[in-house]
C-alpha cells in the first residue's frame, strides 16, 4: 500500500531519513494520518553521510552553557586535573573546558537520552547513579557551591587560588573530605573528572584534545581504519602520526 499522507518529520526520525528512504514504501503503517514509523519493502535507498555528520565544535563561538564566571572555574579545575608538564599542554590549553561547555549545551547536558523518571531514591552503590540532577544542573550547582566553599575557607573564588591550593581542594573533593552545599561532592567531582578526560582523549572534533595532543602523547594513531599490514609486526614501534576524523593540520597546508 502506498503512503497517502506526508509523514511529519519528528519523533527521532529526521526529514533527511525520510527522504533517504524514498524508494521504500512509506506506508505510515498502512494507514492514513501522520504516522512517522517507516515501512520498508524492496531496496532501501540511502544518502551518503545522512546519518553520520557531527558538526565540529566552533571554538570561537564563546561559551554556550557556562557563564564567564563558571567557565573560569572550570578552566581552573581542568588545568589542575591535567596540568601542563613535559608530557603535554594542560587540560585548559587543550580545550577541555570548551568540550564540557558544548557537551552541556547539547543532549548530554540534559540527560535527554536517559531514563529520568522518579521516584528518585538512594539505593545501594551497585544500583548506580540515582540523582535526579542532570549534568547541566550538577555543574551549575556544584560550581557555585565550590566557589562558596572557597570564599568561606580561603576568602577567594576557586579560580583565584594558587595551583597547590586548588590541587588540595580537588583532592579533598575526591576523597569526600569537603561537603559541598546542595550537591554530593563526590558526584560533582567524578562528573568533572570523567568529562575532563573525555574531552582530553576524544576526537578533536568535540573541542578538547587540541591538535590531537593526547594522542601524540600516548602514541594512539586515532581515526585510522586499516592495520592489516601492521598486525603481525610484533613488539615494534610503528611510529604512526595520528589523524583525526577531521584530518590533521598539515593536510590543510598549501603546497
Amino acid at each position: 500500500m502506498k503512503k497517502r499522507d506526508e509523514p511529519a518529520a519528528s519523533g527521532g526520525l529526521t526529514r533527511r531519513e525520510l527522504l533517504g528512504s524514498s524508494a521504500a514504501l512509506l506506508v505510515g503503517a498502512a494507514a492514513p494520518g501522520a504516522a512517522q514509523a517507516l515501512t520498508f519493502q524492496g531496496t532501501p535507498e540511502w544518502k551518503p553521510l545522512a546519518n553520520v555528520a557531527v558538526e565540529p565544535v566552533d571554538e570561537s563561538a564563546g561559551w554556550q552553557f557556562f557563564t564567564e564566571e563558571e567557565a573560569a572555574t572550570v578552566e581552573a579545575i581542568v588545568e589542575r586535573l591535567i596540568p601542563a608538564d613535559d608530557l603535554s599542554i594542560s587540560g585548559k590549553e587543550a580545550g577541555c573546558a570548551i568540550f564540557i561547555d558544548r557537551q552541556l549545551a547539547g543532549a548530554y547536558g540534559g540527560f535527554e537520552r536517559l531514563y529520568m523518571h522518579g521516584p528518585f531514591q538512594d539505593g545501594t552503590p551497585e544500583q548506580g547513579d540515582q540523582s535526579p540532577l542532570t549534568p547541566g544542573q550538577r555543574y551549575r550547582i556544584g560550581l557555585a557551591a565550590l566557589d562558596d566553599h572557597c570564599r568561606r575557607e580561603h576568602d577567594a573564588r576557586f579560580a583565584e587560588l594558587e595551583a597547590d591550593r586548588r590541587d588540595q581542594i580537588l583532592s579533598q573533593l575526591e576523597q569526600e573530605q569537603i561537603q559541598l552545599d546542595d550537591i554530593d561532592s563526590q558526584l560533582f567531582f567524578e562528573l568533572v573528572l570523567t568529562n575532563t578526560m573525555e574531552g582530553f582523549f576524544a576526537d578533536p572534533l568535540y573541542g578538547g584534545n587540541r591538535d590531537m595532543v593526547s594522542w601524540k602523547m600516548l602514541g594512539f594513531p586515532g581515526a585510522r581504519y586499516d592495520y592489516r599490514d601492521y598486525i603481525e609486526r610484533h613488539n615494534e614501534d610503528l611510529e604512526f602520526t595520528p589523524v583525526s576524523i577531521g584530518g590533521r593540520s598539515d593536510w590543510q597546508a598549501q603546497g
Binding site: G12, E17, G20, L38, P44, P48, L49, V54, D203, I245
Partner: peptide
C-alpha cells in the same frame, strides 16, 4: 531505526569513541 552500513557506519566517522 533501520540501520544500514553505508548510511550509519561510514568509514569517515565511525572512529568516534565519544559518540
Amino acid at each position: 531505526p533501520w540501520r544500514d552500513t553505508a548510511k550509519d557506519f561510514n568509514i569517515a566517522s565511525v572512529t568516534d569513541e565519544l559518540r
